[in-house]
Design a protein around this nucleic acid. Structure first.
Lengths: 360, 360
DNA sequence: TTGAAAGCGCTAACAC
DNA sequence: GTGTTAGCGCTTTCAA
């Protein structure tokens, strides 16, 4: 009376059905038929039957035996952030094409969570790690390196550790944005960033500071505390803008701060760029389509994904060779995408410029 | 001369170091010390030593033995789409808290890719599946069901298959949007959707059709072919709008079509809502902050994530019991979030309304 | 050419 | 209370 649950086919089922040994089936399945001089006829029979019954080798058993899982652990800050989800999607695609799968998790910049995630990846024996490191996880990263598991860190790096990394030159990006604003005639630039000590945030701040110093201009910096709720951040930025009306332009150090900033500017009833010019980090549909369109320091997401995965796969290949691989550290240039939000121009010109962009 | 690679600690190392048996260590580690009447002293010694050397059981071996991986396979359409990345982030968090990990992949609505992904999840013996089904993967889904592996489908469902699912009432959403537009005095509504036959798209279209029929109004529907590049879609929508100037409002069936639509409307130099009102599916920073703010039919992302994971975990728990679990099919209501893009109002009022929303 | 068999690291009967 | 041991499903060496 009991439902017969269809049992999963095993390699032994294949072997016994075909009257050959398990080893033969395994060899054929792993493309080692030729080198083991298994007859073409047998190989063909095996392949045909495997196809017929839809046999899928148990990767758990395979991994346990071979020590390879063909899984890459991807740790990002927040998969719901368009920057990370875009990079993740690109990484996923490239990894998939080369036979690797991704397990991903978001840390939300919580070091405890990051540690848990890395620990879980270790337990599952991922073949390699791709990590956007939260602060305070140096120890876990060091452990991965000591195990000699391939690792590439990106978006930011850990100064104390000589890991492979792929980051974007934030100092250059902010510096270019500041220069652009000054060229446009804005003279009092503010910089809104987070209180984080992460390298990418520090670099972006440094670019601003350097530009201000070069021009002998005062620095007006707002560091928003991390981990607060949206409303708090918005009112925080709003107060900052209101208290610094001498500023005629703001650079935001990351996409979500800009989004909160747009809210704050809207509530204050200020017009962009006439009352306040702005530049954001990271491109985003919102910035492209907003009226006025927002000038951004765009990070090269494709290049980030490509470099990250290339370096990791290279290490994965070399793993057996145990060659003393030099550490790969890549610094990619960002691109300043100038739109209306940072242009000093006569009223009405904005609309015309918009049309031009559309026509191009 | 060779670098001594620190060997991973094994359960046998723990046992021999402590002078107890492997079984004792295993039992303690799995919280079965009490029921196996292992002395508290021994249990404490084991735990202390495990802690000290940072022993991490090999989950591959454990899974191979127990048949449980504590991994959930999540298949979405596109992780870079904010709707999916938001739901994924929420699902991930809840799953993590309950001891499950996520492997995710994007199908990009390609059935071949979806099949590959599901096949890969089968090989890796995920404990359960969460799937946004691409068209044409009924067979793979049926296979999962036959294996009796827990499965929840979401965002859309497969009409031929009696799976658990969690979807949003798209007909109701579009119907409400249409009624709202008509109440505002717009009288000629267009609907822009994809050529996809997926249930959620059909439901959204049905809601529009029904509303039009109820009011004896003509239907003006544009079905954009799926899988085209951005520029083609934009010009396609642009032509549609230009050829249908009698329409004074458009409802877009999904977030990315709206984004393309905003581009097209911008290029045509039309003002929203005066020249053309609009409503989009899915909420998004862009829609909230755009000027004018865009009215949306918001999907309840938290509720989707919660229902999806609750149903799956329930099944996971029942798995051993093999109780004849009834299929869970959940239909969640969307919410119409009215903003300026759909309001018929005197010029200048929009700005005021904006401030009101901010104040609330 | 093919088959037998020894593990990969862990769990959980079942002895003692 | 604790130890022994038979697998989970697969790969791969070595013998036939």
């Amino acid at each position: 009376m009991s439902e017969k649950v269809k049992k999963r086919t095993l390699i032994s089922d294949i072997a016994s059905h075909l009257g050959v040994s398990i080893a033969t089936v395994s060899l054929v399945l792993n493309g080692k038929a030729k080198q083991s001089r298994i007859s073409d006829a047998v190989a063909a029979r095996v392949l045909a039957y495997v196809q017929e019954v839809g046999y899928k080798p148990n990767q758990l058993a395979k991994s346990l035996r071979t020590g390879k899982t063909h899984v890459i652990g991807l740790v990002v800050e927040d998969i719901a952030n368009p920057f990370f989800s875009t990079v993740a999607a690109l990484i996923e695609r490239q990894a998939f094409e080369r036979g690797y799968r991704i397990i991903y998790c978001s840390t939300n910049n919580d070091p405890a969570r990051a540690r848990e995630l890395i620990s879980m990846f270790q337990e599952r024996h991922v073949d390699g790690y791709l990590v956007v490191p939260a602060e305070g996880i140096e120890e876990q990263i060091a452990e991965i390196m000591q195990e000699k598991t391939p690792l590439v860190v990106f978006d930011r790096y850990l100064p104390e550790l000589a890991t492979n990394y792929v980051v974007v030159d934030g100092a250059q990006g902010t510096h270019a944005a500041a220069r652009h604003l000054l060229e446009q005639g804005f003279s009092n630039l503010a910089f809104v960033t987070t209180s984080s000590a992460q390298t990418q945030m520090q670099a972006r701040l440094d670019g601003y500071r350097q530009a201000m110093q070069e021009h002998g201009l005062p620095e007006t910096v707002k560091q928003v505390a991390v981990g607060q709720d949206a409303e708090t951040v918005i009112t925080d930025i709003l107060s900052f803008i209101r208290d610094n009306r001498q500023c005629d332009a703001i650079i935001f150090s990351t996409n979500y701060l800009s989004i909160y900033g747009l809210e704050a500017i809207g509530r204050l009833g200020l017009r962009i760029p006439d009352d306040l010019a702005m530049v954001s980090y990271d491109d985003h549909d919102l910035f492209r389509l907003y009226t006025p369109a927002i000038t951004v320091i765009a990070q090269p997401v494709e290049a980030i994904a490509k470099n990250v995965i290339d370096i990791l796969l290279e290490e994965l290949k070399n793993c057996a060779g145990e060659a003393p691989r030099p550490v790969q550290q890549v610094l990619l240039p960002p691109t300043l995408v100038v739109r209306q939000s940072s242009l000093r121009q006569p009223a009405g010109a904005a609309r015309k410029a918009r049309k031009q962009e559309a026509a191009s």
